[in-house]
Amino acid sequence: MSESVVNSVELGATAADWLALLKPRVLTLVVFTGAVGLVIAPSHMNPVLGLVAILCITIAAGAAGAINMWYDRDIDAIMKRTASRPIPAGRISAEGGLIFGVTLALFSVLVMAMATNLVAAGILALSIGFYVFVYTIWLKRRTPQNIVIGGAAGAFPAMIGWAAATGTVSLEPVLLFLIAFFWTPPHFWSLSLYASGDYERAGVPMLPVVRGARYTRQNVMAYTLVLVPFTLAPWALGYMGWVYGVTASVLGAMFIWYAWAVLTDKQDEAGKSLTKDKPAKAAFRFSILYLFILFGACAVDRFV
């Protein structure tokens, strides 16, 4: 071990290390979709309570991320991308990370119940439990379908936002949930096409590792084709107006085009890209923009 690493560990964690446990980069999308769910709900909510509800969703997602880092510390230490995280790098103890995550999770659920209602708090608790127990502990290391089912955890925020405002769950937030749910596979598998080496070393059965790149490309296309009708459903059912309808149609066509480019990328017999995975990288970047614009259109549509 180099001297600088020893020193870094001995000197303890920085404030930034503790914040890194919350996976702040992932939180942006969670906060945004949660806020959209809250804004489009047909109910007036006190703005202070609305902000507290979004804060609770953010803290809960961060807490789930911290518990995930605690559980995955062994495989994180093997993967290049995650080896420098605070727990595998030794700057924060495993127990410290777990206590931090559980404390924040409890706080977020209790405050959500206090500020809004038990339905929102219940779904918030369910989403944390789903991410930790179903995705992290049960599925992630067992099946290449891990992110399909586990993706549900990341799809909850819009529904929680809606429930926080209304105290109920109806078809509309369920559709938002399904959109985020079916968006996850093409989003994540596009990334995994060019970043699966790490998972292979750590023994995590990601789809390209277990079933190969060609099969993964087919699944990116298939799930995109499943996703697009769900994004059009709020418009078709009359929940959303023309702003959302046009946006969803254009974005859907673009996503299908990107997925088609991934499927037909120049590749060898095993499906490995001969173009340095340019289409997969483009599809991954677009998928993030896609969800932001789609949910943004939901909010805009409400006020047009």
């Binding site: 000197l11 964690a13 503790w18 202070v48 309570l49 206090m114 500020a115």
Partner: peptide, 29 residues
């Protein structure tokens, strides 16, 4: 070491203060 410890302490103070503020605001509303 002192710089890091100071950073952690400020963060903890901010978080605890923020928690108190959130509870206070919710109670007021």
């Amino acid at each position: 070491f002192k710089r890091r410890r100071r950073g952690r302490n400020w963060l903890l103070l901010g978080v605890l203060g923020g928690f108190c503020l959130v509870i206070y605001a919710v109670a007021c509303v």
